[in-house]
Amino acid sequence: MEVRTIKVFTTVDNINLHTQVVDMSMTYGQQFGPTYLDGADVTKIKPHNSHEGKTFYVLPNDDTLRVEAFEYYHTTDPSFLGRYMSALNHTKKWKYPQVNGLTSIKWADNNCYLATALLTLQQIELKFNPPALQDAYYRARAGEAANFCALILAYCNKTVGELGDVRETMSYLFQHANLDSCKRVLNVVCKTCGQQQTTLKGVEAVMYMGTLSYEQFKKGVQIPCTCGKQATKYLVQQESPFVMMSAPPAQYELKHGTFTCASEYTGNYQCGHYKHITSKETLYCIDGALLTKSSEYKGPITDVFYKENSYTTTIK
């Protein structure tokens, strides 16, 4: 009895394709271990004539594949690729409408935090270190965002349907971005203890939790000093293409032309909904596939993004 075979390709990165001759009487799992086709788990399936010449994702289970996976995804987590594939199996079914010149995501599976993050990423200057993220990001900007969303979920250790947080998501993504040249110098002034300067680099240099107003941050924000008295913390120097200011959701007025974009969060910790506000020729609110415009805006804002380049204080 002759062994019926077909020729397929296996890959971990969709760049390096490895030619395989597979036995049609055995499952993919018996031949390769966990195997995925377009995100779908085909591990328990036997090869079919229609699979001839198709590319299958496999887990990096030998040295060659491990090197290829690390170079593309910059992670050695053995569960990463499987999590990416199972997320992709959902995100490829989502709709990605162009809204006001940006790629958004039609609401499904509690994905409003991903839509808000995706919209924000198209408006701030950011370059990702893992080629996987950078490639998928370019495709997302062009309207094909399924891979990018699935990668975000995998890097953030999230599953489809789980509630997510924009600030946490951005923080994970910033860790995989090139923020080497970003720098922030802060000064804390206390009447009792004097003053202390701190220099922050990388992710810490672009994120701040405690106030939404970048102007206020430049002037000074009140913080408790270690001595128990009130101290003032203010920005001395900022070198970065953008800054992200966050605070627990509270009524906040966004003035046209003073910011790049913002995240609105309605609801409580267990259950809520994100919308995205962007400042173009007027203010726009993007909620999944829905767009509304207004000249002014007041609502429960939790993150505001500002364009920056270089700032030095005039406070002496």
Results as ranks from 00 to 15, higher is better:
261 C>M: 06
140 A>G: 03
294 S>C: 14
44 K>N: 10
309 N>I: 11
266 T>R: 10
130 P>C: 13
273 H>F: 03
285 C>Q: 15
192 T>C: 02
92 K>Y: 06
96 Y>P: 00
274 Y>K: 06
212 L>K: 12
19 T>R: 11
170 M>F: 09
174 F>D: 00
315 I>M: 13
304 V>W: 04
84 Y>N: 00
114 L>T: 04
211 T>I: 10
188 V>T: 13
129 N>K: 06
152 I>F: 05
139 R>Q: 11
60 P>W: 08
281 E>N: 08
231 A>H: 04
96 Y>M: 02
118 L>N: 04
51 H>W: 02
97 P>Y: 11
254 L>K: 08
160 V>H: 05
183 K>G: 08
237 Q>K: 12
255 K>S: 07
52 E>F: 11
113 Y>H: 10
176 H>M: 12
312 T>S: 14
181 S>V: 08
178 N>G: 07
216 Q>M: 12
185 V>T: 11
232 T>H: 04
163 L>Q: 13
143 G>H: 02
64 T>W: 08
104 S>F: 04
130 P>W: 01
250 A>W: 05
272 G>V: 05
213 S>L: 07
141 R>P: 00
59 L>G: 09
112 C>N: 06
269 Y>M: 15
175 Q>E: 11
16 N>A: 07
41 D>H: 02
188 V>F: 09
178 N>S: 09
261 C>V: 01
139 R>N: 08
198 T>D: 11
235 L>I: 09
279 S>K: 03
252 Y>I: 14
37 L>T: 08
89 N>Q: 09
30 Q>H: 13
308 E>K: 08
72 Y>M: 13
254 L>V: 07
38 D>L: 13
155 Y>S: 00
162 E>W: 01
111 N>C: 00
51 H>M: 07
124 I>T: 05
273 H>V: 01
109 D>R: 04
25 S>R: 12
294 S>R: 13
286 I>C: 02
154 A>M: 01
295 S>Q: 12
5 T>V: 15
186 L>C: 09
282 T>Y: 10
43 T>P: 05
298 K>R: 14
36 Y>K: 03
258 T>V: 08
218 K>A: 07
55 T>R: 11
283 L>Y: 04
213 S>R: 11
219 K>M: 15
241 P>T: 08
230 Q>W: 10
282 T>W: 07
53 G>I: 02
102 L>V: 07
36 Y>G: 07
192 T>K: 13
39 G>L: 03
211 T>N: 07
246 S>V: 03
218 K>R: 07
287 D>I: 03
45 I>R: 14
105 I>Q: 03
127 K>M: 05
71 E>W: 04
311 Y>E: 06
154 A>H: 02
183 K>S: 08
196 Q>H: 05
219 K>S: 11
130 P>A: 04
61 N>C: 13
287 D>H: 02
62 D>I: 02
140 A>D: 07
283 L>N: 10
18 H>Q: 08
225 C>P: 05
257 G>T: 06
312 T>G: 11
176 H>E: 02
237 Q>R: 12
310 S>Y: 11
39 G>Y: 06
193 C>W: 04
223 I>T: 12
268 N>G: 06
230 Q>D: 09
208 Y>T: 03
205 A>C: 04
289 A>N: 04
249 P>Q: 06
20 Q>A: 10
236 V>A: 15
221 V>D: 01
192 T>E: 13
217 F>K: 05
47 P>Y: 00
190 C>R: 04
311 Y>D: 09
146 A>S: 13
15 I>S: 07
71 E>C: 07
157 N>P: 09
185 V>G: 04
309 N>G: 12
146 A>D: 08
242 F>N: 06
274 Y>N: 06
47 P>W: 00
5 T>L: 09
2 E>K: 08
31 Q>F: 15
163 L>W: 13
284 Y>H: 09
56 F>A: 00
175 Q>T: 11
299 G>S: 05
315 I>A: 13
92 K>I: 09
277 I>L: 09
292 T>W: 12
7 K>C: 07
49 N>L: 13
87 A>L: 06
298 K>G: 08
247 A>I: 01
178 N>T: 09
273 H>E: 08
